[in-house]
């Protein structure tokens, strides 16, 4: 990316008509999968419990950069941000996360299998 003298970061999109993806408004509109709703619920609940703020959510999302915005889905970015915030808060460690993800992945090859086995 060319340095931008305005000092705007990538997420500050308002008025950026020159961006190649600032084309027609996309016609996407669908309900969310269960795992995505769970990410949303965890973000909201963590906020209500006082271990997380919307500012913390946004900080990590914005620091992920433009590439993540274009290549990851909305709730993929949200779960990555939620996780980073939980790590920073000391809720669990990187080792805890790595061990648990390996365990989850060993339970089955579908979301339902991997979830139900742990429920």
């Amino acid at each position: 990316m060319t340095p931008d003298a305005t000092g705007k970061r990538w997420h500050d999109m308002g008025g950026d008509l020159a961006h190649p993806l600032a084309g027609p408004i996309p016609d996407g509109d669908h309900d969310f999968a269960l795992w995505e709703k769970r990410v949303d619920a965890l973000v909201i609940l963590a906020g209500l419990k006082g271990v997380f703020t919307v500012d913390g959510l946004r900080r990590v999302l914005e620091d992920m950069g433009e590439d993540a915005f274009e290549t990851m889905t909305y709730y993929e970015r949200w779960v990555a941000s939620l996780n980073q915030n939980m790590l920073e808060q000391g809720v669990y460690s990187v080792a805890d996360l790595g061990a648990r993800m390996a365990e989850v992945q060993a339970r089955g090859t579908t979301y339902a299998d991997a979830t139900d086995a742990g429920a």
Binding site: R38, L42, A46, Y92, R100, E103, V104, Q105, Y111
Partner: peptide, 10 residues
């Protein structure tokens, strides 16, 4: 997998 792991840990 990360969602499941994060949820269980939380």
């Amino acid at each position: 997998a990360m969602e499941i792991a994060v949820r269980e840990l939380m």
